[in-house]
């Protein structure tokens, strides 16, 4: 269980000639137990915001708290440790590592800092794979399975750590409609039934029905923030 609070989070990028603001000060709070969809046109700053939340990118301004602890500007190693312990990521592409089996790709999420992986964890990997409809794929190399299955493996890789927060960037955009629905269904269940904080970035209208909360962004600002259908007051700092 974790909650995330953003206070005036902004980000500038240097585009070679000048500093450009791609994220204007944003105030948001994310709660566990719901699936938040971050929507908006391409270039509106969704990925930038998700990267800041995910501690892989630092904000240029503002502060951020994770379960009451300030996580703005953490040292690189501390941020890494926090990502390892608290975060699960699902990217647009599955980003599985060639040369490692499905199982080893998943275990890497636990062992990347050198921790010993006890034997029982392999049992958990098998259960997790089965629950994601991937029974008997543990020993296969990633290139042997379909795109939809790979994306589910990447969800397994995020889930094996039992993370409080799961961040997904366009997880369905590389999938066909059917696989997209399957993946969203899984993420929805993870958020609600397992009380995790799940944020899904997407500009695909087909994922909106899965949202408990829909945040719309445009030109680096939040333009709408609605909870499960009914509109809420805008939470935007101008």
């Amino acid at each position: 269980m974790a909650d995330l609070r953003l206070e005036n989070i902004a980000r500038d990028f240097y585009d070679g000639r000048q500093l450009r603001r791609v994220l204007f000060p944003i105030n948001l709070t994310f709660k566990p137990g719901e699936l938040t969809v971050l929507a908006g046109p391409s270039g509106s700053g969704k990925t930038t915001l998700l990267s800041i939340i995910g501690l892989v990118l630092r904000p240029s301004e503002g502060r951020m708290w994770l379960s009451g602890r300030e996580v703005t500007g953490l040292a690189d190693d501390v941020a890494s440790k926090m990502r390892l312990a608290t975060y699960g990521f699902v990217f647009q592409q599955p980003m599985l590592i060639d040369g490692l089996s499905v199982q080893d790709n998943i275990l890497l999420a636990l062992g990347i800092q050198g921790a010993h992986i006890p034997g029982v964890v392999r049992q958990r990997v098998a259960e997790l794979l089965t629950s994601l409809g991937l029974a008997d794929t543990a020993r296969l190399p990633p290139q042997m399975i379909s795109g939809g299955m790979k994306q589910r493996v990447s969800i397994a890789r995020a889930l094996i750590k039992d993370p409080a927060i799961i961040l997904c960037d366009e997880p369905t955009s590389a999938l066909d409609a059917e696989n997209g629905q399957v993946v969203m269904g899984i993420l929805k269940k993870i958020a609600v039934a397992e009380k995790r904080l799940v944020v899904v970035v997407s500009h695909d209208a087909r994922v909106f029905p899965f949202a408990d909360r829909l945040i719309k962004m445009e030109n680096g600002t939040v333009v709408a923030d609605t909870a499960a259908g009914k509109p809420q007051g805008l939470d935007v700092a101008s």
């Binding site: 892989v56 390892l84 990521f89 990217f91 590592i97 890497l108 999420a109 800092q113």
Partner: peptide, 19 residues
């Protein structure tokens, strides 16, 4: 390079990549 970036995102420190 992409794989190392993935490892970093998963929580790998620079030192883990070095290892």
């Amino acid at each position: 390079t992409r794989d190392f970036a993935v490892m970093r995102a998963l929580g790998g420190r620079r030192r883990d990549i070095a290892v």
